[in-house]
């Protein structure tokens, strides 16, 4: 059953330059997220992968009502939780929570861990009295010793702060957790602990995860479906195994091929991708990827491609989808 359904979501920021709009009185907008449509089923994980500047974090913030969106719609559990500009209903924030990118910075520095993880109760369940017991329950749930409740954020490690962030995100038994780069900056051994914990919570409480990440190795293991974002658009979306086995969009293919591996004899294929992401201020006409695309043709710079179903069953926005990965 579909839990979250996003249609044509667009987030724009006004351009602020030295004299922007000063003479004409018109504001220019730059689309950071342009026209995203997605469905997330209950109790599953959807990963949104892409490079920095692809708009994936902005998209996550828009879903939490932290950034207003210009157009599009959002349906959670059959209802629209909030208008494009406005604060989300409390009932929505009761069921949807977010894990932030920087684990230590997202914790109020002068509050104890115990106070921090019970903050959702103070906000949504003021009737609840025994917060100490709740704090203990949550700490145990994420595998931290119960005496951590007395510590302060600066006294714990990055991996532990992640666990605290996760404990706070699942405190109210939400149905959806939006995880923004849940493993960024973590060592591989600690990264596994956090991911295993997320998988366990999903199995036990049937919580859905919307995971924002640039780490494709993590995506491959953790998500049911994968969406690859480029310059504010989803270029390919489908079941994770199919997207990885035979990516149809040249960008998705290049990104997957560029993924480093420590296996001896593995050669990553970085040659396919030259240059860097274009500035959203000067979005290329047609397909935004065409200046970097190894398979670009005249049509690509003229019209933007519409999503179509690829041979593998994924939704691909490309005029000339690949039949097979170029390196296989």
């Amino acid at each position: 059953m579909t839990l979250l359904s996003v249609r044509d979501l667009t987030v724009s920021y006004p351009v602020r330059g030295p004299l922007a709009g000063w003479w004409t009185g018109q504001k220019r907008f730059v689309d950071v997220v342009c026209g995203i449509s997605l469905d997330l089923a209950e109790g599953t994980t959807l990963a949104i992968a892409g490079e920095s500047g692809s708009g994936k974090s902005t998209f996550a913030r828009a879903l939490m009502g932290l950034t207003p969106f210009r157009s599009g719609s959002l349906i959670f559990d059959g209802k629209a939780p909030f208008p494009a500009r406005g604060r989300p209903a409390r009932a929505y924030l009761h069921q949807v929570s977010m894990m932030f990118q920087d684990p230590v910075a997202s914790l109020s520095p002068r509050r104890t861990i115990g106070a921090l993880i019970t903050e959702p109760f103070r906000i949504h369940r003021p009737d609840l009295r025994n917060l100490e017991a709740e704090a203990k329950r949550l700490l145990v749930l994420v595998g931290l010793p119960a005496d951590f409740a007395q510590r302060y954020p600066h006294q714990i490690s990055g991996g532990q702060a992640r666990r605290v962030g996760l404990a706070r995100a699942v405190a109210l038994n939400p149905r959806l957790v939006i995880a923004d780069e849940p493993t960024a900056g973590l060592d591989v051994s600690v990264q596994g602990e956090i991911l295993n914990l997320m998988a366990r919570l999903q199995a036990e409480q049937s919580v859905a995860f919307l995971m924002i990440t640039h780490n494709l190795a993590v995506v491959r293991h953790m998500s049911d479906r994968t969406a690859i974002m480029y310059m504010g658009r989803i270029v390919e979306e489908g079941p994770t195994d199919r997207v990885f086995a035979s990516p149809a969009h040249p960008y998705a293919a290049a990104l997957i091929a560029a993924e480093p591996s420590s296996l001896p004899g593995h050669h990553r294929h970085s040659a396919a991708l030259k240059g860097e992401v274009s500035s959203p201020l000067h979005r290329p006409d047609g397909c935004a990827f065409h200046p970097r695309c190894p398979a670009a043709r005249p049509l690509c710079s003229a019209t933007a491609p519409l999503p179509q179903v690829s041979a593998s069953g994924a939704l691909v926005s490309c005029h000339f989808p690949l039949q097979r990965t170029p390196d296989q």
């Binding site: 591989v188 051994s189 596994g192 602990e193 295993n196 998988a199 293991h221 994770t240 591996s261 296996l263």
Partner: peptide, 16 residues
């Protein structure tokens, strides 16, 4: 622990 070395997807990654 390196997830890129694990061929078959798993939600129980090795840890130290």
């Amino acid at each position: 622990c390196d997830p890129s070395r694990i061929e078959i997807p798993t939600r129980n990654l090795p840890v130290i």
